[in-house]
Design a protein around this nucleic acid. Structure first.
Length: 468
RNA sequence: GCCCCCAUCGUCUAGAGGCCUAGGACACGGCCCUUUCAAGGCCGAGACAGGGAUUCGAGUUCCCUUGGGGGCACCA
């Protein structure tokens, strides 16, 4: 049968970088194997579900280019299904009604923890008689449904990334709840029912789910279903190997987007966390699909490195064509709305190598082309030594019909002024931009425009006359 | 407390017993190039957590220690 995988986030906030990596690896695995990528929203915890998070997830995935083939399914639309399975388990004696109150359970749990014992359910309600059950029910006591853990349970998970993992019976907290008293299924139950019904072949998820697996295996057995292949991805941790903290930068897709990261950059960087290509690291989604393999994912946790993310991002900025780059940069170019598209593209291309993120683009454009320049006193000497160059070039520029051929204007100016090389170009650059570095002058001048160039050159001469 | 996972340069990683005096990338330092530069080129510094065992031979296999992480819910 063909590969079927799913990405199953809970809508409790914006997609986190760890979730995105999980989504990406599922997606890559599906695409690589001509499989189906399913999106399922696990919204069975009403208190933690936010409608805005739901649409946010869809937007984030779309932005990243991770398109899904089926879904989005919402677990909240499937409550009848879970309920009917829970009832079936009840009938088959695989589960039982539990009348313990949450408060009661919490007390027992804390007590056990305090005594250094594993906090497992006592099994108080495991063997209630019919009479006891109907008495409790007639009292109006609400109940949850617990899964009965068989004595002979054995837990072996064959993980694609970690190999064989054996679990102790202690890994199980005792009989666990599958249906809450409000009729909502719990995670461990709902995932298995859904994965089973949706014919999921490979469950690719974060390592934090590893210890849930034995419990889920038990449900598969109760269902008499073959479990899928598991692959537990390593966690993403902070740069000091601690938990990813909010302070360390931006961890939601939304924040990354707002910071001017390209979807190509984010996806490329994330693919490199836990997996690595043979040679070139900078890759497009297509290239990633080509080379990706789940078996090669490393089992050890990886640290999030914002510096490398930015470097990768820059590589993608360098690779895009002007048109595309402009469309990506648009949200950051609000102040440039009325500028002609052609000019913007030229300006962007001239400064792109200074931009690690899209956010840098407007900064750089303003820096070279828009802001009033104020010449720093530290350049006085250099400007003075190149005064001749500035004068000559200014003169030529004024008389030039066409400024598209800056090179020959330069050649002429070099001949006339007697200055050359750095001694010629550097003063002109400073006069024109106020900085020692920036885009190539031959590119910069036509973008700046003749009028503005003249203005700035004259301004620099005035600067020299003033004071001294 | 119990269970599980992980362990190569600062970071991401290559490495599936001899190819390793451990390779690459980011970051870092230096040099070169260049009409500027944050670009490019070259060079450099920088790691197999510790201890046993197996083996002719261990970064690579096994065990222990240590360290890090995850889980033990009517959260997912």
């Amino acid at each position: 049968m063909g590969v079927r995988v799913r990405f199953a986030p809970s809508p409790s906030g914006s997609l986190h970088i760890g979730n995105v990596r999980t989504a990406l690896f599922n997606w890559l695995f599906a695409r690589k194997n001509n499989g189906i990528f399913i999106l399922r929203i696990e919204d069975t915890d009403i208190e933690r579900t936010y409608e805005s998070a739901y649409s946010g997830i869809l937007e984030d995935l779309a932005w990243l280019g991770l398109n899904w083939d089926e879904g989005p399914y919402k677990q909240s639309d499937r409550l009848d299904i879970y309920k009917s399975y829970a009832e079936r388990f009840l009938k088959e004696g695989l589960a039982y009604k539990c009348f313990c109150s949450p408060e009661e359970l919490e007390r027992e749990r804390e007590q056990a923890l305090k005594e250094g014992k594993p906090p497992r359910y006592s099994g108080k309600c495991a063997n209630l008689t019919e009479e006891e059950i109907s008495r409790l029910e007639s009292e109006g006591r609400s109940c949850s449904i617990r899964f009965r853990i068989p004595e002979d349970a054995c837990f072996v998970v064959e993980d694609m990334i970690r190999g064989k993992i054996e679990f102790d019976v202690n890994a199980i907290t005792g009989d666990f709840i599958i249906l809450r008293s409000d009729g909502m299924p719990t995670y461990n139950f709902a995932v298995v029912i859904d994965d089973h019904l949706m014919k999921i072949t490979h469950v690719i998820r974060g390592e934090d789910h590893l210890s849930n697996t034995p419990r889920q295996l038990l449900i598969y057995r109760a269902l008499e279903a073959e479990p899928p292949v598991f692959a537990h991805l390593p966690m993403i941790v902070g740069s000091d190997h601690s938990k990813l903290s909010k302070r360390e930068g931006s961890f939601s897709v939304k924040e990354l987007r707002e910071q001017g990261l390209l979807p190509e950059g984010v996806v490329n960087y994330l693919a490199l966390l836990g997996w690595s290509p043979k040679e070139e690291e900078v890759k497009t989604l297509e290239e990633l699909i080509e080379e990706f393999s789940l078996e090669d994912v490393s089992p050890s946790p990886s640290a999030y490195d914002p510096a490398k993310l930015r470097w990768i991002n820059r590589q993608h900025i360098l690779r895009l064509d002007g048109e595309k780059l402009l469309s990506y940069a648009r949200p950051f170019l609000k102040e440039f709305e009325n500028f002609p598209k052609e000019w913007l593209i030229k300006a962007i291309l001239s400064i792109r190598e200074y931009a690690e993120t899209l956010k840098d683009i407007p900064e750089e454009i303003k820096k070279y082309y828009l802001n009033d320049i104020s010449l720093d006193d530290k350049y006085r000497e250099e400007l003075l030594s190149g005064k001749k160059a500035i004068e000559v070039f200014l003169d030529l520029l004024k008389n030039a019909e066409d400024i598209s051929d800056i090179d020959s204007l330069f050649k002429e100016a070099i001949k006339v002024s007697g200055l050359k090389g750095r001694r010629f170009y550097h003063p002109i650059r400073i006069a024109l931009t106020g900085y020692e570095s920036g885009p190539e002058l031959v590119e910069l001048i036509p973008i700046l425009g003749k009028r503005k160039c003249i203005e700035r050159l004259e301004n620099s001469l005035r600067f020299l006359e003033a004071e001294k």
